[in-house]
Amino acid sequence: MSPAPPERGRSEQDEVTDAIREAALVAPQRGGHPDRAYAPYRSTALRSPSQPLVVAPASLLEQTAPVFGAKDVAATDADLTVHSTGEPLGERIVVTGRVLDRDGRPVRNQLVEVWQANASGRYAHDGDRHPAPLDPHFTGGGRCLTDDDGRYRFVTIKPGAYPWRNHHNAWRPAHIHFSLFGTAFTQRLVTQMYFPGDQLFALDPIFSSVTDEKAQQRLIARYDHDTTVAEWALGYQWDIVLDGPGATPPDPDEV
C-alpha cells in the first residue's frame, strides 16, 4: 500500500475559487453584466450601492453622447509602439474589431480608448508596485476613432499577467482595458479584453464576476491569422456590442 499523498492546506486562492464557483450558481445577470456586489472581488464590498438602482426614463440629454473628432485624436495615438524614441519589448500585436449597437449597427466615428500593462505585466503608474521592469519605450495608453464600419484598430504589445492584492497569490489574466462611447450617454462602457486560452480565467474574480459562460466568451478576443501581419505582428479580433438604447427588452421585474 502506498502512503496517501500529504494533504496540502487550503490556500486563500482555493477559498476564492470556491466563492467564484458558488457565485456562478445564482441567477443569470441581466445583459451579462457583473453584479456590483461580488464577494470574491473584495473591493466591491464597500463600493457597491446597497439600495437598488432607481429606474428612470433616459432624459433627452442622456439619449445623446459627446462627439469626438480628428482634433481629439492623433493618428499615432492608435499605435502604442511608437510613443517613444525606441521600440518597446514584447510580442507586437494588432487588436482590431467593430463597435456595434445591439441591433448590429456600427457605432461610427466614436472614441475608443485603451490602457494596459507592458509585456512584463507592469503599468507605467506610480501605484503599481509589481517588481517587474518598466519599459522606457512603452507607456500603454492609446486612442482611436471608429471608422464608417464601426471598426477600430490598435497596434500594441501583448500585456503580461500581473499580481494584485485581492488575496494571497492573486494574478490577473493578461488584458487590455477598453473605454467606449455610443451615440447615447446610456451606452457608455468600460471593460477589459482578454486573450484566448488563459489559465488564469477561473482563478480571477474580476473576469469571473461575469458568471454566464457565454457572456465570458464575449470578453475574449479571437486569434485571427488574416489579421496577423507577416514578419511583423500577430493579430486579434474583438467585436464590442454596446447596450441600448432601446434594444434591451424590458425586465418584467422592473416595469
Binding site: 445591439r102 480608448e113 501605484g127 471593460t191 477589459q192
Partner: peptide, 17 residues
Amino acid sequence: TLDPSPSQTVGPFFAFG
C-alpha cells in the same frame, strides 16, 4: 439582437489611460 459586451472595472491604473 446582439448580446452586449459585459462591463469590467476601470481598475486602479486608469490614471495614465
